[in-house]
Simulated scan of single mutants.
Amino acid sequence: MKSFKCGLAAIVIIATLPRVATAEIIFWTDPAERSGSHFVRRAGPGPGLQTIIGNLRDPRGMAVDSLNDKIYWTEPGLGSISRANFDGSGIEQIVATSSAGGGVALDVSAGKLYWTDGVPGSGLIKRANLDGSVVETIVPSGPFHPAGIALDAVNQKVYWTDLEGHLDGAGRIQRANFDGSNIQTILSGIDEANGLALDPSAGKIYWPDLTTNRIQRANLDGTNVEDIVTGVDDPTTVALDLTAGKIYWTDSQPTPAVSNRIQRANLDGSGIQVIVSGVGVPWGVAVDPTPVPEPIAGIMALIVWGTAVAIVRRTN
């Protein structure tokens, strides 16, 4: 009986070892105008940087469905939204859009896909089921040229950036209820914010400003605007990995290609790192946070198990 208790204790210790590290998979669209070749790429655990989908026509917005291992992207050059598996297989064209389809966001728990249709002067916010069925226009008027889009599923709000178009500080960020009602302008006086990301639990919204070369954030109601990263060459879109407490952004200038990289930092802008550089023209970016065991945890598990086995043998 004594040896049985020792073995059981060891098993419990192994089962409760924490998963304390994350290994992100990063996906991005690459409308590499200079070469005429357009792609979806990924980088992360395993084989490193990969081109997983090619022969696209101006892919832009990118979103990740971590629950079903799917990526979604807008493709204005084709007038569509498509999806595929994480490895690039199983490509499906699911929604027809205008040639100004921009950002895309997912509410996976509700089975909904949202996107901006950014025809200047007559922008729309639309949604559909994740398979592209039941298309609805939820905001039929108001936005001039909507681009970035993000969702607050906790408070049932959709946020979008509106590019005024003249780079004179007349751009804005707006929001509405998921059904399109109660449109509010929460922030004005920005220039060209093509991307948008939310941290609802912390009450923060993040965006890049291409014209002023910075990454900014504010409260969800638009108050307390902060510059968290400055001096970015050409920030285009942003994504958050809230598990790791990181913000990612693409830094791209198609012609001539100057920066063309993906960077990340802590959510307050500290600890800037270059993740990918010198590959095409990164535009839309999305992150799938994948938890993995810390190596030390695996080593400790083996040590504990080995000790337990030795105890069992001695007591027998």
Rank of each mutant, 00 (worst) to 15 (best):
S122M: 10
A153W: 06
I14F: 10
I296E: 10
R19M: 15
I52F: 12
V64H: 02
T211S: 11
L210K: 13
I91W: 00
D179A: 08
G132Y: 04
G271I: 03
P18N: 07
A193D: 02
T307C: 14
N85M: 07
S259R: 11
V258Q: 12
P18R: 01
G111S: 03
S201T: 11
S133I: 08
V108F: 06
A43N: 11
V292G: 04
S99F: 08
I272Y: 00
W305C: 10
W207Y: 11
T223C: 00
L242E: 03
Q156F: 06
R261C: 01
P143A: 10
L210M: 14
P146F: 07
G101H: 01
I94R: 05
Q263H: 15
Q50A: 02
T290I: 14
N224T: 07
V154H: 02
Q253C: 13
N194H: 13
I262Q: 05
L151F: 04
T237G: 06
V154C: 07
A297C: 14
D30T: 04
K246R: 15
A100S: 15
R217L: 08
S89T: 15
A128M: 07
T315C: 11
G222Q: 05
E136I: 00
R127K: 06
M62L: 03
T290K: 10
R172T: 06
R19S: 11
A32W: 07
F86I: 06
V158K: 03
G103V: 01
N266C: 11
D199R: 15
Q184G: 07
N194D: 14
D65W: 03
A193P: 09
E24H: 01
P120L: 08
T16L: 14
N177A: 07
W73L: 00
W73I: 03
T161L: 05
D191M: 11
A84V: 05
R314D: 05
V238G: 10
N224R: 03
S82H: 03
I94S: 02
M62G: 00
I81L: 13
M62V: 01
V95K: 05
V108E: 08
I52K: 07
T307A: 14
I14S: 09
A84F: 04
W160G: 09
E136P: 00
I71K: 05
S99C: 04
T212F: 00
I299D: 07
V229I: 15
S80P: 02
L196F: 05
T315R: 14
G46Q: 06
P208N: 02
T236M: 06
P291L: 08
P282F: 13
V279G: 01
C6T: 09
D87K: 02
Q263G: 15
V134C: 05
A21T: 11
I183A: 04
M1E: 10
K157P: 01
G180A: 10
P295Y: 07
N316D: 14
R313M: 13
S141K: 10
A153Q: 14
G111Y: 06
P59G: 00
A239P: 03
E294I: 04
L240V: 11
T211I: 14
A21H: 07
A21C: 12
T16R: 03
I262M: 06
S252D: 15
N213R: 14
L187F: 09
I52E: 08
L242S: 04
F178C: 00
S80D: 06
T243N: 15
S35M: 04
V312M: 15
P289Q: 08
R57N: 15
D58Y: 05
G189E: 13
Y114R: 13
V285E: 13
R83L: 09
